[in-house]
Nucleic acid binder design. Structure first.
Lengths: 163, 163
DNA sequence: GAGGCTAGGTCTGCTTGACAGACCCATCAA
DNA sequence: TTGATGGGTCTGTCAAGCAGACCTAGCCTC
């Protein structure tokens, strides 16, 4: 895949929207229900300017929406909530959580879990193909060119043997 | 979660390792079987200095390993291969691929697919809890504090109603 | 009305990383 | 020896991050 194809690659497009640390940390907080500017700022450690800009960008791109609210005795304020489109980013965060839990475990165990609402057990990523098969091993997932690929190149051909 | 807890959060730890665009793009290429410095450079468009530094960092952190090889008539070279630890990052990329396919589709369709080796069908992320339940909706995944959380705070308590 | 408080935003100057382009070094073949 | 080149490093410029300070607007109290 050369940069021409990279433009058609969904991973690259996703990265254009969320491919940096602060954005992911903000999404983590919003997923957890932390929605106010200063709460997010304290939780993530993001500088105000960075946070302000990222929140605006996420709203622009339809991932978050600003919801006005007002507590008695205070001025009107806004909180940030996920759109459906934003909610669909959750698997990325769950996958990151899983990788970190497994490969970079914290001494006291994780601070955050993703749990199944009904039974409370931890939620994990599973892989399934559209024909309905369980894909048990990551090595059973292979990259293939899709319809938007521009060259007739074999994906794994150019650098020798398989992954 | 304040920055103290953030240090125990697996998402943040994962982001410390892979939380930026170039790293993900490099991983995409290596997952696809593109392993040589210049091939990765051309495919990702990364400047040499960035690529060199990121590759070294991924090797340092045990995600990639450098494998020497030598083609007849050429000097010794290295290619970059995934470690098992690196391979476990695949679900993150698959989740990104899915999000991009769905929310930012390319006009000609995706350039890259993740396919099931045995049957060729597209692989997708599914969610399952450790008690064995299928988690059909993302909204059935709820954040919970884990054992490493430092405060007795309720996760969703501080900003009002649920996500 | 004035004054105080503060949530969220903006500004300034400094630091750090990205980036383009150039250069460098080591290994091979002729 | 020379020439080619893969992978790396260097230099100067630009852009973003960052700390700290400042600003504005809406509310309340006096």
């Amino acid at each position: 895949m050369d940069p021409t194809d990279a433009a058609a690659c969904s991973i690259a497009r996703t990265l254009d929207v969320v491919g940096e640390k602060w954005t992911f940390l903000i999404l983590r907080e919003v997923f957890r229900g932390v929605r106010r500017f200063d709460d997010v700022r304290v939780a993530t450690g993001a500088p105000r300017q960075v946070l302000s800009e990222r929140l605006a960008s996420l709203v622009d791109r339809g991932i978050l929406r600003r919801e006005p609210y007002r507590e008695p005795g205070q001025r009107p304020r806004h909180e940030y909530r996920l759109t459906d489109r934003g909610f669909d980013l959750y698997p990325i965060l769950i996958a990151m959580l899983a990788w970190g839990d497994r490969h970079l475990p914290a001494p006291d165990g994780p601070a955050l879990r993703a749990a199944h609402r009904d039974c409370g057990a931890d939620v994990r990523i599973a892989l399934r193909c559209e024909a309905g098969h369980e894909v048990a091993a990551l090595r059973d997932v292979v990259p293939r060119p899709g319809p938007g690929a521009r060259r007739a190149q074999t994906v794994a051909g150019s650098s020798g043997s398989r992954v």
